[in-house]
Structures are given as structure tokens and as C-alpha cells.
Simulated assay, not measured.
Amino acid sequence: MQNTSYYMSLPFDVSGSLSKNRFRLELLWGISKMLDIYDYDDFTMVFDYVCDIEVHLKDGYEFYQLKTHKGDKIYTINDIVKTNNGSSILGKLYILKRPYDFQNVKLALVSNSYLKTEKKCSQTLRKLA
């Protein structure tokens, strides 16, 4: 299957020691998401392989990138589109959508911080805790 071979060819997430401590938050958020959809549909949940949290459903996919900040730091658009070693936070999500354009795909950035666009601070990115 074309989608499977593309997915398996993607570089897996190689997190460093700094993000090792964040995995607990990813795990807890993922378990919460799992409980939300448990009775809803058959699914497979993948933790920290290509994306932080992935939900593979019968009729589509959901990819979640979790980002955390200590204190009151606020994300800006520049933070999520800034390239670091050739890819950005948003870019890592959108590379996953490419082969699935004809299917139901949800891409989401989840953060414990707010997003500031121009002069407005949005709570669209809900706080985790």
C-alpha cells in the first residue's frame, strides 16, 4: 500500500534528553485522548514514532504534535513556522498529510501555552494543565 510505504519511510522522532521528561505529559495526554475515543471507533494509537501522538482510524488519521513551555512563554506564528534543521513544528505535521490528501486527516498542535497572532493572544491552543 502506497500510504504504508510512505509512512514507514518517514524519519522517526529522535528526541533528546530534554524531551525525555516531556514524554510523561505526552503519555498522559495520549491516554486522555484514548479514553475520549475508546467507545467511538476502532483505532490504533501510536506514541512518539513519527509524530508525538497518532491515531489511526478506519476512515482516517489524526496527528498531534505536543509542545510544552515552562512558565508563561507564549508561542508566536514565527515560533511554529521557524525552521530548525530543515523543518518547522508545522512542517513536521504537514509532511504527514501529503500521502493522505484523499482521506480524512486531522493535524493538531497541542500546547500548554497560548498562541499570539499579531496583537491578539488566542486561547485556541488550549492549555493542558
Rank of each mutant, 00 (worst) to 15 (best):
S19P: 00
S9Y: 03
L10Y: 09
Q65C: 12
K97Q: 14
A108T: 12
Y49I: 04
Y100N: 09
L90H: 08
D101W: 15
L27G: 02
Y61V: 01
D59W: 06
M1L: 10
D72C: 11
L28V: 03
I80R: 15
V14A: 06
K82E: 14
L18S: 13
L10Q: 14
I89S: 06
L107I: 06
D72L: 14
L28W: 07
S88K: 13
E26I: 01
R24P: 00
P99E: 03
I31N: 07
N3R: 08
W29G: 00
R24H: 09
V55Q: 07
D42W: 04
S32E: 03
D59K: 14
Y7L: 04
V55I: 15
I80L: 15
D36A: 01
L109V: 14
K67Q: 06
H69D: 05
S111C: 12
V50Y: 08
I37E: 02
L66Y: 07
K106D: 00
Q2D: 05
L35Y: 04
P99F: 09
Y49H: 05
R22W: 11
D41R: 15
D52S: 03
K70N: 11
N21D: 02
R22T: 05
V55L: 15
L25G: 02
T44L: 14
L28G: 00
Y38H: 06
Y38S: 03
W29S: 00
R24W: 10
Q2I: 04
Y100L: 15
G71C: 15
Y114W: 07
G71T: 05
L90T: 09
Y94L: 14
V110R: 01
L35D: 00
R24F: 12
K20R: 05
N3M: 09
S113V: 09
T44F: 06
K70T: 12
S5P: 00
L93Y: 13
L96R: 13
V50P: 01
D36M: 06
S111L: 05
M8T: 01
T44H: 10
P99Y: 07
N3L: 07
V81Q: 11
N112V: 03
N104D: 12
K92Y: 07
H69Q: 14
I31V: 13
I31S: 02
G86C: 06
M45C: 04
H56R: 08
S32Q: 04
H56G: 00
N85S: 10
I53H: 06
E26Y: 02
M8L: 15
D36H: 08
F47E: 00
E26K: 00
D36Q: 10
M45Q: 10
